Computed example of a mutant assay.
Amino acid sequence: MGRGKILQRPYSPQQAQLLPANQPGAITQAATEARAGNLIVIPTDTLYGLACDAFNAEAVRAIYAAKQRPYSKPIPILLADHTDLPRVVRNVPPVAQIFINQYWPGPLTILLPKHPDLPEEISNNDSVAVRIPNNEVGRAIIRAAGGAMAVTSANLTGQEPADTAVDAKNKLAGWVTAVVDDGPSPHGAASTILDCTGGRLNILREGPISAQSLLGLAER
């Protein structure tokens, strides 16, 4: 994988703007930062997320550096709308479409075949983790930034995830240029992860959506 050079904190901690979600222009301002190749923090329906343009390889590498995250751990992609899905996946297996119809937008991340246009930094294999969050502010930012963002929890690897914007700003000082504050995160848990790339369903992480609910839907 083309990791490039080891990145250092590119900004002073004072450069991170805390933007109230209801402040006029906040969504546009955050999206502009992302389009410029910078890292930002956005609200989702689970936890606050460290985000960048999903198609900007250098920005994706900066996420790994900011989180001290090993390259062996892929970074999920959050979409604004269902129509953005063909940009990031090669195809959607019929079984995956069942879960998409039922749980998107919502706290279900689905592994799907990765589109070749995505930078290799997104994942070290042929799949990509994708979801649409049930958070209007987060989706509005993603939409304004181009429709698809690489997003992972706003914290250092191994630390507790940030559940407020201020906490995220403090954890990632020096790495982000904008933090959008939409109040405390509604969930204390990350999304459920479901692998739909193989011949059988594989629940990789149980979160707000239980394994029992997923298996029950699959058996209908």
Rank of each mutant, 00 (worst) to 15 (best):
125 N>F: 05
125 N>H: 11
126 D>Q: 12
126 D>Y: 05
127 S>E: 08
128 V>Y: 07
128 V>W: 03
128 V>L: 01
129 A>N: 05
130 V>M: 08
130 V>H: 13
131 R>E: 06
132 I>N: 03
134 N>D: 15
134 N>Q: 13
135 N>V: 03
135 N>E: 02
136 E>S: 13
136 E>C: 07
137 V>K: 14
137 V>M: 12
138 G>Y: 09
138 G>V: 02
141 I>F: 15
141 I>A: 14
141 I>M: 11
142 I>T: 08
143 R>M: 01
146 G>N: 11
146 G>W: 05
146 G>P: 09
147 G>M: 03
149 M>H: 08
149 M>Q: 14
149 M>C: 15
149 M>K: 07
151 V>H: 05
152 T>V: 07
152 T>G: 11
152 T>K: 10
153 S>T: 13
153 S>N: 08
153 S>Q: 10
154 A>F: 05
154 A>H: 11
155 N>G: 06
155 N>D: 06
156 L>M: 00
156 L>K: 11
156 L>N: 00
157 T>E: 09
157 T>D: 07
158 G>C: 02
158 G>E: 07
159 Q>T: 11
159 Q>N: 15
160 E>T: 14
161 P>M: 04
162 A>L: 02
162 A>Q: 08
162 A>I: 02
163 D>E: 09
163 D>W: 10
163 D>I: 12
163 D>C: 08
164 T>D: 06
164 T>I: 00
166 V>R: 13
167 D>K: 11
167 D>Y: 05
168 A>P: 03
169 K>Q: 15
169 K>F: 06
169 K>G: 12
170 N>M: 06
170 N>G: 02
170 N>W: 00
170 N>V: 03
172 L>K: 04
172 L>F: 04
173 A>S: 14
173 A>P: 11
173 A>E: 11
173 A>Y: 12
174 G>K: 05
174 G>E: 01
174 G>A: 03
175 W>C: 10
175 W>Y: 08
176 V>D: 11
176 V>G: 09
177 T>F: 01
178 A>P: 12
178 A>N: 13
178 A>I: 07
179 V>F: 10
180 V>M: 00
184 P>K: 09
184 P>M: 06
184 P>E: 08
185 S>D: 07
186 P>R: 13
